[in-house]
Design a binder for these strands. Structure first.
Lengths: 131, 131
DNA sequence: CGGGATCCTGCACGATACTG
DNA sequence: CAGTATCGTGCAGGATCCCG
């Protein structure tokens, strides 16, 4: 500790494990799944309806991964025609604020990003290779 | 507006566009790229060294996407043997806090997640289908 | 040094059908 | 209803070569 450890960096280093974890939590559907589950517990088909673009397979695999990572709990409610409820787990709630922040960030900056995209695409096919 | 619009939800709805944007910013490499670029501007091969696992192609495409989305600026420094510098753009800095939060979240919860994974995997092959 | 062009591969994701 | 099983596919991503 002779070195001045004054680096304010709260992120010492990003190991592959960290990346993997974030990948599994921030993947294509997990963010939305966690978002709606934060709102209230849902059943399988309720989730499908809440996220129309997701297919059954993707939803299943995403849910299982989230369950494996301790982000959601899979609760069998009844045993009659089978009823399963997915609810946010303790670990999942630690992500809630991040998710909200992420979603509101995207809402806030979507316009600016679209603007940047247009500028980029414009100058792309203009100053390119004139015959 | 006869309906009580008192939902405190800061995220009205997640449109596909929002998802797409987050996907492009939180994808496999962008998070790390933005993270190291937040620290200081880097050249192409400096980035490769900073993120050893990334290949040239992935880095190139990620950088171009980030550039297109206005997250990073691509600056030609010299013209001799060609020198290019990537630096975080204005839009990119709006993400900095989120990125830090995400990375520190993963650092904080990695152990708990690994624990949850073990439990999940254990009960998976134990209570399964005994012959 | 900073990439573009190509080829190849895996696997993420979708569509469809079937089960308890 | 809540999935599992199977098949098919696109495309992200790796490896390699090459160029200004």
């Amino acid at each position: 500790m002779t070195e001045t450890a004054r680096t304010p960096a709260p992120t010492p280093q990003v190991t592959p494990e960290h990346r993997e974890l974030l990948d599994q939590v921030l993947d294509k559907w997990s963010l939305q799944i966690l978002d709606v589950l934060c709102e209230s517990p849902r059943r399988f088909n309720e989730l499908r309806r809440a996220i129309p673009a997701v297919t059954q397979k993707s939803l299943t695999s995403a849910l299982r991964r989230l369950e494996r990572n301790g982000m959601v709990d899979r609760v069998i409610v009844s045993t009659r025609p089978v009823a399963v409820e997915y609810r946010i787990a303790a670990l999942g709630t630690t992500l809630q604020d991040l998710i909200d922040a992420l979603l509101s960030w995207s809402a806030t900056n979507l316009a600016a990003v679209n603007d940047a995209r247009e500028r980029f695409d414009d100058q792309a096919d203009s100053g390119g290779t004139p015959p």
